[in-house]
Amino acid sequence: MTLTAKDFKSDLKPIWCPGCGDFGVVQAMYRALAAIGRPPHEIAFVSGIGCSSRIPGYTTAYGFNSVHGRALPIAQGIKLARPQLLVLAAGGDGDGFSIGGGHVPHAIRRNMDITYVVMDNQIYGLTKGQLSPTSPRGLQTVTSVGGSLEQPINPLLYVLAYGAGFVAQGTPADMAGLTAVIEEAIRYPGFAFVNVQSPCVTYGQENQQIKAHREQMKTLASLGHDATNMAAALARAQHYGSELYTGVFYKNPQPPQTFEAQARERQTQLGPSARPRDRILDMFRQQ
């Protein structure tokens, strides 16, 4: 059966502000999922809290709009319990790098086959425009009236430094490019991270909108970037905030075994000696 983008679109109408970058992101996801060819009932979509975290409801896949910053732990739990499912996690920069920031390194080092898409708009939009972990230094918001005094987190360096096997960036200003990196991330057998520069039309900065992205963006492919070279990826990623590079920064050419595959092996090894479920409490009884 050939699947189309429409097969992944739910009947729920998005309530994002008109002009929001997330409209393009969800379209790119529909297209990427259609290209992957797994039917909606074989896909689980988990998010945290925020404007972008509404995305699971706008797809026909199984969805879980969970709690703030906890998309990754829940996605990992689903993947471990149901490894045959295609598991996606999504959320904003605040959800991923502030409230949920502590979960990202552990998801990376555990290396489950999950695709994590962060819609990075450098602001808390849903709560009306406070500083987020990726807000640039000097940004004036309702919580930084005199301008932010903090250095922003660099999501690309963050995940590369912890050893993510697939790291990419896109923008809805380039729908074909964004669709391609999401599809490639899903196909990567391990933890894959896609940072999407998805503008907040209501509280975002003028130079972060789609029109500006079209002028600023440079595809890594056009720069001759070698996505198998970690050092080159780190060098390019350092320009987050000053250059808008799109495409794949890093893709491990020899992906290590995933956590769920190792867990299955361990289960097989220990299976013959394991207690049956109804005798599990015997472990805690005095012999």
Binding site: P18, C20, G21, F23, R31, K211
Partner: peptide, 21 residues
């Protein structure tokens, strides 16, 4: 040809929309 091969040929960009247009 399929719809997946098209990217906003004549469709207005999402970024065109604004509240209270």
């Amino acid at each position: 040809v399929t719809r997946e091969q098209l990217f906003d040929v004549e469709a207005p960009d999402y970024s065109e929309a604004r509240v209270f247009m």
